[in-house]
């Protein structure tokens, strides 16, 4: 077990960690705004990536525009889900498990729809800027990974400022924590919820677009991404975007280092088991109570 191997594990762990983190951030945002666990967050990523792929190739649009379309489609998907499904169920005062099952059902539907519309292939997007890797201690990090990490950090900082400083952000949190109280203060609770889903969908799409140059995206990936994102978000206290980053990176590093030490077939088992243990032992995530209230 050499230094370069450990270094490689760390680098790939951080890269993966930020992918999980981006999904986890989206989950945290939606939970923060609606108290709903969105089991189709990974599908937003797949939608964003797929739309970008098809805007780029068959349609021949420039990369920047394709990315914009991808992000918009993620946002639109979020709003449509909210308007078509979540709002009616909210009106009927459906229970927690109904929402969970709704999002699971939507995840299954979307995954099948992507297969039907886009086919069974895996798609790669071109890297942003230059192709290539940086070499650190005889281990390699993709330059695309730096873009990913950078964007994730910007998103987290942006969200912090948004929720903490802007009126809109504060209204969204209020609408989630105390809908009736918020309504009496003139906050349009339903619109806040739609905006939350819009934001969640956007972040999800961004995650997919950033990942697609690294890992070929296909119709299958959504659920796997969602699970890892879940784990990241939970480690971070579930409604704290910064926590999701910490959770994601922790998870990514755990996985990679486990591979260095143990037979690699058990990587997922180890990560999932750790996640369960942490949920039981540290219910507020790694950041403690701060994690759960968070922002």
């Amino acid at each position: 077990m050499s230094a370069s191997l450990v270094m490689q594990a760390i680098l790939s762990g951080i890269t993966n960690g930020f992918v999980y983190a981006l999904i986890g951030i989206g989950l945290a945002v939606i939970f923060k705004g609606t108290q709903i666990i969105n089991a189709m967050q990974g599908e937003f990523a797949v939608i964003g990536a797929m739309v970008t792929v098809f805007a780029l190739e068959p349609a021949g649009l420039p990369y920047g525009l394709s990315i914009l379309l991808g992000v918009i489609s993620g946002a639109a998907a979020g709003v449509i889900i909210d308007r078509l499904f979540v709002q009616p169920m909210m009106r009927q005062r459906a229970g927690e498990e109904s929402f969970l099952l709704l999002t699971i059902g939507l995840a299954v539907t979307l995954s099948a729809a992507v297969l039907y519309l886009a086919g069974r292939n895996s798609y790669l997007l071109p890297s942003w800027g230059e192709e290539g890797v940086i070499e650190i201690l005889d281990a390699f990090l993709q330059i695309q990974a730096l873009w990913l990490i950078g964007t994730a950090i910007i998103v987290v900082v942006g969200l912090r400022l948004f929720y903490g400083r802007t009126l809109l952000g504060l209204s969204m949190m209020a609408a989630s924590m105390d809908p009736d109280g918020a309504a009496t203060n003139g906050i349009n609770v339903r619109r806040m919820r739609s905006l939350t889903f819009l934001l969640g969908g956007t972040i999800g799409a961004i995650a997919g677009i950033l990942v697609a140059p690294l890992v070929a995206v296909n119709y299958h990936m959504g659920i796997a991404l969602t699970l890892k994102g879940f784990a990241a978000a939970i480690l971070g206290g579930l409604s704290n975007p910064l926590g999701a980053v910490l959770g994601g990176v922790t998870l990514g590093l755990l996985e990679s280092l486990a591979v260095v030490g143990f037979p690699s077939g058990y990587k997922d088992v180890i990560a999932l088991a750790m996640m369960i243990v942490i949920m039981i032992v540290m219910p507020n995530g790694l950041l403690g109570r701060v994690g759960r209230i968070g922002g």
């Binding site: 499904f85 709704l102 059902g105 539907t109 979307l110």
Partner: peptide, 10 residues
């Protein structure tokens, strides 16, 4: 099938 499920839940 996914849609049918979603409809039942909703």
């Amino acid at each position: 099938f996914g849609l049918a499920l979603v409809l039942v839940v909703t």
